[in-house]
Design a protein around this nucleic acid. Structure first.
Lengths: 96, 96
DNA sequence: TTTGTATTTCGATAACAATCGAACAAGGAG
DNA sequence: CTCCTTGTTCGATTGTTATCGAAATACAAA
């Protein structure tokens, strides 16, 4: 099997794996609908899950290339990485 | 929340979970590229994984509505369920 | 009816994922 | 400097997933 193709499969699978977690889909929906950046604490309150768990999900989303992060002082602002969605899932955000 | 939307959400989540396994992505690609039905044994040889594992993946794909199954005697032929892809992931097959 | 082929199910195992609270680090406000 | 807020990391727990080989099932052919 083509090793480059195999790597692509793994990357694509990672994107899907990231999207197969309801809380991460919710995070993306909040991001998309609020149309602004969000912080860990904010999401923690809105979804009623601990900050450590949100941090864990933020990391997963960023690692999969689904979000961007902007750091300002001790606060990290999350936003949607449009590029990735355009490339891999052009219709996903509309379906939220 | 809209119950129809809720059903769609659940189905979409299941589709993503199903697609989060590299071997299942590979099975779909083989299906798409060969443009014909495939059997469990055939895929087992091509991907070099046991037949029981392939059977497990076949079940997952069918359960998520991603594939169709046609039974003839003791053999099960798998094919892509175009309808589901059109509805939920219109650009996915092209990207394979 | 015996044999062979295709697939599924079972039991076990090893790896991974989601979650929490506690502890920690780093920056800002007073 | 001390306190508060923000976020990360750690350790533990609980549940899920991918995988295999062996056994079981179902059908067909000889």
């Amino acid at each position: 099997m083509d090793i480059e193709q195999s790597k692509k499969d793994n990357q694509l699978a990672e994107i899907f794996k990231t999207l197969s977690e309801p809380n991460r889909i919710r995070i993306l929906r909040i991001l998309d609908h609020s149309d602004r950046e969000l912080t860990c604490s904010e999401v923690s309150e809105q979804l009623n899950i601990s900050k450590s768990t949100v941090s864990y999900h933020f990391k997963a989303l960023r690692h999969a290339g689904l979000t961007n992060t902007r750091q300002a002082a001790q606060t990290k602002y999350l936003s949607i990485n449009e590029k990735t969605f355009k490339e891999y899932l052009p219709s996903f955000l509309k379906s939220l």
